[in-house]
């Protein structure tokens, strides 16, 4: 394909088609609406506009079980409504992709401004234990690439995969050269309808519900977790830039905010996860080389808390709130935490 000037949300739509998505269902919401607006013009894709986000993800689950690659796209308030069905999709092992273009919350918040407030909701939004794979690109080109990654990871893990974006990168226009020669993973499991199949939200063994068998439940959860780890290891994307100058500090950031982190590449080493969850061993290994870790994020410490938990050490938090990404402010804040 030739060079194209694309908006982040358009890149997601284009990539979904390249990945083989045949079904999309969604509900209008700022700042994700451009995805459905774009997809309705693509002939190969069945696009449904539903009456709310609960129905949107429910139809995606149905379409996926029936054999189509399927996706939905939303923002924070819609993502909240989808949570019960996300848990269901994990329990029934349904491959699908959920795009969450984050805006400032909670509630209506600041609908047109970027935030990163849904990080914990990605992994703990539904009740019970489940183990989602989550990606968060930081450019239009990466939104394109990792929409395809998300589909591949979903098909491989047979689970809902979350592609995070934010109002900034989704509304950003950049020139990209969309590749179409990616390896595309297709599902091995036969669709509903081939033989008698039973998908249930109950704890189960194969199709058989086991609602009071603790051993079976433990086995099920262990299997789901292992499956996620095995898949995630194949898509362990991150960006690590070692500082040319001597530094004892690692600056971790992701999504829109990581674009401004490049400005500090001569002062700190930079780490940017693209695979947000599960957090894999590479970060542990890299972190060992640094005395100080700063996590800069557009929330009050959601990813920082997870990193502390994984690394078993304290990190310094630099929250950037309210949708304003100002180099001057971040410079001052960074010099503040460094001199501490």
């Amino acid at each position: 394909m030739s060079k194209q000037l694309l908006q982040g949300n358009q890149a997601i739509a284009l990539a979904a088609e390249v990945a083989g998505m045949a079904f999309f269902s969604g509900y209008p919401i700022t700042p994700a609406s451009e995805i459905i607006n774009d997809l309705v013009n693509r002939k190969q894709i069945k696009v449904l506009q539903m009456e709310d986000e609960i129905s949107s993800i429910a139809t995606v689950i149905g379409a996926s079980l029936a054999g189509l690659k399927a996706m939905t796209a939303t923002s924070g308030p819609g993502f909240s409504l989808m949570q019960e069905n996300i848990g269901l999709a994990h329990m029934m092992e349904v491959p699908l992709v959920i795009v969450n273009v984050q805006r400032v919350g909670p509630s209506t918040g600041m609908p047109t401004l970027p935030a990163q407030g849904d990080i914990i909701q990605c992994i703990h939004g539904s009740h019970g234990d489940y183990f989602p794979i989550v990606f968060y690109p930081n450019s239009v080109a990466e939104l394109y690439t990792h929409t395809i990654t998300a589909f591949n990871a979903a098909e491989e893990s047979l689970s809902p995969v979350i592609l995070l974006s934010d109002a900034f990168i989704s509304h950003l226009y950049e020139t990209i050269t969309p590749q179409s020669d990616f390896p595309i993973k297709n599902r091995e499991r036969p669709p509903l309808g081939s033989g008698s199949r039973h998908f249930t939200g109950l704890s189960h063994d194969n199709s058989l519900p086991k609602t009071s068998d603790a051993d079976n439940y433990r086995k099920l959860i262990t299997r789901l977790r292992e499956k996620q780890l095995i898949t995630a290891q194949q898509y362990n994307y991150y960006e690590y830039r070692e500082c040319r100058n001597e530094t004892d500090t690692l600056l971790i950031s992701y999504g829109a905010l990581s674009r401004i982190a490049y400005y500090f590449k001569n002062e700190f080493s930079l780490f940017r996860p693209i695979l947000m969850f599960p957090i894999l061993g590479d970060l542990k290994r890299i972190a060992l080389q640094y005395k100080k870790i700063i996590v800069m994020e557009m929330n009050t410490g959601q990813y920082a808390g997870e990193i502390e938990r994984i690394l078993h050490r304290e990190v310094t938090l630099l929250p950037v709130l309210g949708g304003r990404i100002s180099l001057e402010e971040i410079k001052n804040a960074l010099s503040g935490v460094v001199t501490k």
Partner: peptide, 27 residues
Amino acid sequence: AYGNTGFQASGATPFASKTGTTPVGEM
């Protein structure tokens, strides 16, 4: 239609109306 998000179709959209999610074209 959903006016606030860019005029996408709603359950109230009448037959044959063009909206953001019911574009008019070859298809």
